[in-house]
């Protein structure tokens, strides 16, 4: 049939055109009222590098003195003042190097040992930071994502500098508080859990620190509050966190040996 029946074709074309127009109209209207976000390809991949569990120390380290955290400030303490310019921050250190209350007098030797340890940690920390600054953003985040044993890291969702600041500040806060938390040994097997809310204003000053769910044990609760006190002063949070930290605050859920 060389001749196309234009009589058959016309109604089909009209129907098709109508269907197309209706579809376009429908989709346009829908897109207008429910706009979608542009596709973010950089969030598509998440990689967790998992390491083997570390060998547990058969003999735990020698008695740690509380003075381990109450070392006098070193030159590195000045680095804690945050950069004024909002760029990739040289973060507030997770290692604590800051002035505190006077120590028990008899812990001088342990203080020296603790100082050496802190200096070593500060050196390692400086090294780590300079390496990170040299690599791309992704590499730095990937290096931090190595986790041990059966724990899952929070993963990386890299979508802009805001996300990075936000996560980095909270990570630093967590590392700092974890470093300062020293619950008593006699509660090591007690399976306790305490929740504390911490509100920080935009300069890093503490607006509120309060126990919202007690563990039922005074000494354990007190150890959480002491950890916060020893972690002060806090660095000013990034802008993306101003509102949250000043109004709702951050909830700290402390449960030694709990599931992550």
């Amino acid at each position: 049939m060389a001749r196309i029946e234009s009589a058959d074709f016309k109604p089909a074309l009209i129907t098709s055109a109508i269907v197309h127009v209706v579809l376009i109209f429908f989709l346009t209207v829908r897109a207008y009222f429910f706009p979608s976000e542009p596709l973010r390809l950089e969030s598509a991949i998440r990689v967790d590098i998992v390491g083997l569990p570390e060998k547990a120390a058969a003999l735990p380290p020698p008695i740690e003195q509380p003075a381990a955290t109450e070392a006098p400030p070193s030159a590195a303490a000045s680095k804690e003042l945050p950069p004024v310019v909002k760029e990739i921050p040289k973060a507030a250190e997770p290692v604590v190097l800051k002035p505190t209350k006077p120590d028990p007098k008899q812990q001088k030797k342990n203080q020296d040992a603790a100082l050496k340890r802190l200096e070593a940690m500060a050196r390692l920390d400086r090294l780590a930071r300079s390496e990170a600054a040299n690599k791309a953003l992704n590499d730095a985040k990937a290096a931090q994502a190595v986790v041990r044993g059966n724990q899952l890291s929070k993963g990386n969702s890299l979508s802009g500098l805001t996300r990075l600041d936000h996560a980095k500040y909270l990570d630093d806060l967590e590392a700092r508080i974890k470093n300062q938390w020293r619950p008593p040994k006699f509660l090591a097997n007690a399976k306790l859990r305490v929740k504390v809310v911490l509100m920080i204003d935009k300069t890093g000053a503490v607006l509120k620190k309060q126990i919202v769910q007690s563990s039922g044990n005074n000494v354990f609760d007190e150890s959480a509050l002491s950890a916060l006190e020893r972690s002060m002063p806090f660095a000013p949070p990034p802008e993306s966190l101003h509102g949250i930290l000043a109004n709702q605050g951050v909830e700290l859920d402390l449960e030694p040996n709990g599931f992550r």
Binding site: E64, P184, L187, G249, L252, E255, N257
Partner: peptide, 12 residues
């Protein structure tokens, strides 16, 4: 609100 969970502690 932000949330931090800590499950490691250095008992002393």
């Amino acid at each position: 609100g932000a949330y931090i969970r800590i499950t490691d502690a250095n008992f002393k």
